[in-house]
Amino acid sequence: MTTPELPYSDLTPDSVMDAVESLGFQCDARILALNSYENRVYQVGIEDEQPVIAKFYRPNRWSRATIAEEHAFLLQLAEEDVPVVAPLQHQGDTLFNANGYHFALFPRRGGHAPELSREHDLELIGRWLARIHQVGARQPFQHRHTIQPAADLSQAAQQVLASGLMPEDYRDAYQSTMQTLAQQLPEQLPWNTLRLHGDLHSGNLLLRDQALFFVDFDDCLQGPAIQDIWMLLSGQRDEQQAQIRTIAEGYEVFRPFPSEELVSIEVLRTLRIARYAAWLSQRWSDPAFPSAFPWFTGHAFWSQHLLALREQQASLFDEPLQRF
Rank of each mutant, 00 (worst) to 15 (best):
Q175A: 05
D219H: 10
T193Q: 10
I244W: 03
D199T: 09
Q236R: 15
F214K: 11
Q227F: 08
A242D: 11
P149C: 08
P224K: 03
R245I: 01
R208C: 08
A242F: 03
R245M: 10
Y170G: 01
R245A: 14
P190L: 08
T246K: 01
A151L: 11
A150I: 01
P167L: 09
Q184A: 14
H143V: 01
I147P: 02
Q188P: 00
I147W: 03
L206E: 08
H143Q: 15
H143M: 01
W230E: 12
A150Q: 12
A150L: 12
C220G: 08
R245N: 08
Y170Q: 09
Q148T: 08
E168W: 00
L196P: 03
A211Q: 15
E239F: 00
R237E: 14
L221D: 02
T146E: 13
F254H: 15
S202L: 01
L233A: 09
F217A: 04
Q148W: 01
A157H: 06
F213P: 00
A242L: 11
Q243P: 02
F141H: 06
Q240Y: 08
I244V: 15
P186T: 09
F213M: 05
R208E: 15
W230G: 04
M166E: 01
Q227A: 10
R245T: 06
L221S: 10
D209T: 03
L206T: 05
F214L: 11
Q159T: 13
R144E: 04
H145V: 12
A173T: 12
Q222A: 12
N192H: 14
T146W: 00
E249P: 00
D152R: 02
A248D: 05
A157Q: 15
Y170M: 07
P186R: 06
L212W: 12
L233T: 09
A151K: 11
L194R: 14
V215E: 07
A157C: 12
D216V: 02
I247Y: 03
F141M: 07
A162V: 00
Q175R: 14
Q148C: 02
A248R: 06
L161N: 04
F214W: 07
L161D: 11
Q210K: 14
D228M: 04
Q184N: 07
F254E: 14
I226Q: 02
L196K: 07
A248V: 08
A182R: 13
L194T: 10
D209A: 15
T146N: 00
W191L: 11
Y251E: 03
P149D: 04
R208T: 11
R237L: 10
D228H: 06
W191E: 01
S163Q: 05
G250A: 06
T177D: 05
Q159L: 13
Q236F: 06
D169L: 06
P167Y: 09
V253Q: 15
Q155G: 06
D218F: 04
M178Q: 14
G198Y: 05
P167Q: 09
G164P: 06
P186A: 08
G198C: 07
A150F: 03
A162F: 00
L189H: 04
Q243L: 06
L233R: 09
R171N: 02
L194V: 08
I229C: 02
S234D: 15
L194C: 15
A173E: 14
A151M: 05
L185C: 09
Q227P: 01
D199R: 07
S154K: 14
V160E: 03
Q158R: 13
A182S: 15
Q188G: 00
V215S: 04
I147Y: 03
F141N: 07
